[in-house]
Amino acid sequence: MQVLHVIALLLVAITMAMALAHALEYPGKLRLSKESYLATQTIYYPGFTFGGICEVGGIVALVALLFLTPLGTLRFWLIAVALALMLSVQAIFWLVTQPVNKFWIKDLDLHAAGGRFFSLGGTKEVRDWKELRDIWEYSHMARSVLAMLSLIAVTVALASNP
């Protein structure tokens, strides 16, 4: 079970790191023109698509940990909190971030897995690019905070008595 706990910890940490990376770019990206911002957005999708698998893996690992942890213990509740937070990270992605992603990449020729992945979910109506930028950037800030709280919860669970 300790191996599973470390795997969950690692997957949640990767999720947090990716969202935090986006959040930390925000001040610099505010200085970009529309053309530069739109060009910059398209560089993320190949690598972050594969990294996004860690989000799902983290949820699966946390569900497995929750199933294997005695009900009602501090560790159980910390893992449950970590899981709820990771589910919230996913909800924000699918309800807020992904529709904007689809707008940013509408003119890109994505191949294989990336093309299939970015065809999923709803699409944002065309609005002012700055409004879409802010929705996308703030969604990653929210995701980074929730993922960080999940990382804290799963770390404390690992450190607590079984």
Score class of each variant (00 low, 15 high):
29 K>V: 13
139 S>D: 09
127 R>Q: 14
42 T>K: 10
42 T>W: 01
162 P>G: 08
82 A>M: 11
98 Q>G: 00
99 P>K: 08
21 A>R: 12
48 F>I: 06
97 T>G: 00
138 Y>L: 12
67 F>L: 15
146 L>W: 04
87 L>T: 04
152 I>T: 14
47 G>R: 09
17 A>R: 02
131 E>K: 13
73 T>F: 05
26 Y>R: 14
141 M>T: 15
84 A>D: 11
78 L>A: 07
81 V>D: 00
162 P>V: 06
36 S>D: 15
109 D>T: 13
3 V>Y: 13
157 A>Q: 01
162 P>N: 07
146 L>D: 01
125 E>G: 15
135 I>K: 12
38 L>Q: 05
22 H>F: 12
140 H>V: 12
65 L>T: 07
129 W>V: 10
72 G>V: 11
55 E>M: 11
54 C>W: 01
132 L>S: 10
28 G>I: 14
60 V>G: 03
89 V>G: 04
55 E>G: 11
62 L>N: 02
48 F>Q: 08
42 T>V: 11
112 A>V: 01
49 T>V: 04
123 T>I: 11
29 K>S: 10
120 L>M: 09
86 M>R: 04
59 I>V: 14
55 E>Q: 09
140 H>R: 05
15 T>L: 06
39 A>C: 10
23 A>G: 05
17 A>I: 10
89 V>S: 05
91 A>I: 14
5 H>C: 09
97 T>R: 00
